[in-house]
């Protein structure tokens, strides 16, 4: 105890923590306020709003899983090369040879779990009517985050470059062929012509832009890799900041007025 007391008296400790041990209201408030990570929280919350039977903690679990996915994802990037010649073998190595070889498992099962927790979070928010004013906008941000979660999972699906990956993505992206006006097998696409030359073909439609080719190939692997590792997480990160900020600005976890 004396050692701990001495430790907390050092200049180093004091330079990091601006409060005493949080066993009283003042230091508990300071603990939240003076910490950049904790200060997402308000100082005080509704008693009804911290009940696990009310929130189900699904939003929190989703955010935690996003962190898990980020960390395990970055670790996987050290070994994985998103090139057709290597991708599958790198996956095999990650599965069989790489030390502490559960990174891929953590990443994959965490991703599945995250999809579930997002849905359950949304279910809770709906059933408690928490999308109602003043939280309409934040519900919208949440819907976009839900879509981004599914897109993250979908783009990650291709990266192992095995049969499951390529065919799930083939089936999924082939629907883009049928986009009205913008897909070459979509209704109305035949109407878009320059004279006799069709503008929307297999080599110029929205699916081509997504895949970087007419079939799921090397360019697609690279694209999905970049989308999966950089592009979508970045947007999701920004929107999460907005989402959490608005939870507080709109009055915290909802409760009867």
């Amino acid at each position: 105890m004396a050692l701990f007391k001495n430790l907390t008296e050092t200049q180093i400790w004091k330079s990091i923590f601006r409060h005493k041990y949080p066993d009283n209201t003042r230091d508990q408030a300071l603990a939240v306020l003076s910490n950049v990570f904790l200060h997402l929280h308000p100082i005080k919350v509704r008693k009804s709003g911290v009940r696990m039977s009310f929130t189900w903690c699904m939003g929190g679990v989703t955010f935690f899983l996003f962190l898990v996915e980020t960390i395990t994802g970055i670790l996987l990037m050290f070994y994985f090369r998103p090139v057709v010649e290597y991708a599958f073998n790198d996956m095999k190595d990650l599965r069989e040879v790489t030390p502490m070889g559960i990174m891929r498992e953590l990443h994959r099962w965490g991703a599945h779990l995250m999809v579930i927790t997002v849905w359950l979070h949304m279910l809770r928010v709906f059933l408690t009517g928490s999308y109602k004013p003043p939280r309409e906008f934040n519900w919208n941000v949440g819907v976009i985050l839900l879509v981004l979660t599914l897109l993250l999972s979908f783009t990650g699906y291709l990266l192992p470059w095995d049969q499951l990956a390529i065919w799930a993505v083939t089936v999924g992206t082939n629907m883009a062929r049928a986009t009205p006006l913008l897909g070459h097998e979509g209704p109305g696409a035949a109407l878009l012509t320059l004279g006799d030359i069709p503008i929307i073909t297999a080599g110029s439609d929205v699916r081509f832009g997504l895949l970087g080719g007419t079939v799921v190939g090397p360019a697609t692997l690279m694209r999905f890799y970049v989308l999966h590792c950089v592009f979508i997480p970045m947007i999701a990160g920004v929107l999460m900041a907005v989402h959490f900020w608005r939870v507080r600005k709109d009055g915290g976890i909802s409760g009867p007025l």
Partner: peptide, 8 residues
């Protein structure tokens, strides 16, 4: 995003 040459 619409490449000019394809490796197909």
């Amino acid at each position: 995003f619409f490449p000019n040459d394809l490796f197909e």
